[in-house]
Design a protein around this nucleic acid. Sequence first.
DNA 1: TTGCAAAGTGTAATAATTACACAACATGTT
DNA 2: AACATGTTGTGTAATTATTACACTTTGCAA
Lengths: 244, 244
Amino acid sequence: MNKIIPNISVDCVVFGFDSSGLKVLLRNRKLECPETGQLLINDHTITGFHVYEGEDLDSAAQRTLFNITGLTGIYLEQFYAFGSVERVNSEKEKCWRSYNNLGISDHVFSVGYLSLVDSTKIKPDQEHADVSWMPVDNLPELGFDHKEIIAKALERLRLKVRLEPIGFELLPEKFTLREMQELYECILGTSFDRRNFRKKIGQMKYVIPLNEKQKGVAHKPAQKYIFSRDVYERTKIEKLDFSI
Amino acid sequence: MNKIIPNISVDCVVFGFDSSGLKVLLRNRKLECPETGQLLINDHTITGFHVYEGEDLDSAAQRTLFNITGLTGIYLEQFYAFGSVERVNSEKEKCWRSYNNLGISDHVFSVGYLSLVDSTKIKPDQEHADVSWMPVDNLPELGFDHKEIIAKALERLRLKVRLEPIGFELLPEKFTLREMQELYECILGTSFDRRNFRKKIGQMKYVIPLNEKQKGVAHKPAQKYIFSRDVYERTKIEKLDFSI
DNA sequence: TTGCAAAGTGTAATAATTACACAACATGTT
DNA sequence: AACATGTTGTGTAATTATTACACTTTGCAA
């Protein structure tokens, strides 16, 4: 049995994307009073867990991510460490700990990881009924300091997406340029001229058109594209040129 | 008396700049065998210390930074958390701990901070004889995983310097355009055309020329400039436009 | 007075970015 | 069968940013 380190955890902000925008994978947390049955806590948290003894941060984050998504090999990046004294010490969290204390410290330092997944690969409803995608621009009530953690993750995502082609991690393997444009628009909160956007993408040799079209749409079907990391690595130039 | 948290520390990479390039502030660490007097360890470390109970990460970093520089209000930014299992468990570090163990865990998670100081404000020789500026491109032997930490700090500095006007933190209050250009050249490892660089800086309203010139130089003295954060905050545009 | 070393300055060529409108197409509806 | 709908796919001209490049000025030291 793995022993947890009582004062160190990882928290993983899992981003997904679909036609209605950018999402975060959250778990519903409920606590009801054993005597009265009253709902003491009913909020949401990102997924996280204490680091095990003898485990390093990245492994702990991968483990945590696997537990909620059932997937391995997904994009995962450490982005910030959170260590404020109050982060697990609000009244609500004291209450939570009083019912769930498993030898956990009252000052837990948590290392935040940011993960990007193709949301079509996850069917959260099946495996964990308490897990769901929530829109980043309309989050429910969150536990701990998870609002702050998500905000910081989003900030990092916005930065990173302009510097590296990580947007593709959020798209299905085959995607249309419209999907790609919508993704970038909703991450960056801007809108692009369609022709200029396409011109720009056209220059990216690593975004490769397929001989395949959308099906079952009530309009002219769009061509599908794939991203080639391989071509990207070979042709990338050291420049902040992903700003679109 | 403050009690330390045995498994959590902060490490602070302090960067400075002078005419010979970019520097890191390092402390010489020596350990001699109490019996034989033999030098068991003679290397360098960045400055760091365990977090105290009830203290948060930023405060711990500020405290640590003050201890080595004697300065407050300096640029300080968290950049990465290090938690590999081996980081304090090499033969050398086991040896160090066997002589200096103050209730320290054998798996210490360290949060890396990056600090930028005007090196003219620090006279390391006076206060601590064991502290000195070392060139980043020619580092001595380093303890713990500090080589990796410095590398990561440098990577972050290179990124950040293109996105925000933090370079000025490394310059004296009044500086010449040549100093500024040399700073950017040595951080980014490139060289700029002098006229184009000046043209670019000319557009930055927050780099303000003074009615003051260099003195005591054996050539045409250069005009001095200051950076105004105030003007910057007012005029900044959301764009990755600091790439020069 | 002369030599030295760095400061300070402008222009033309090239490349990148922006703004903008219409025909083609697959489907669902009448 | 014809039509309505909604989205795809495409080019050009104007503007702006980037690059490459050479000579005169200045203050001090010898």
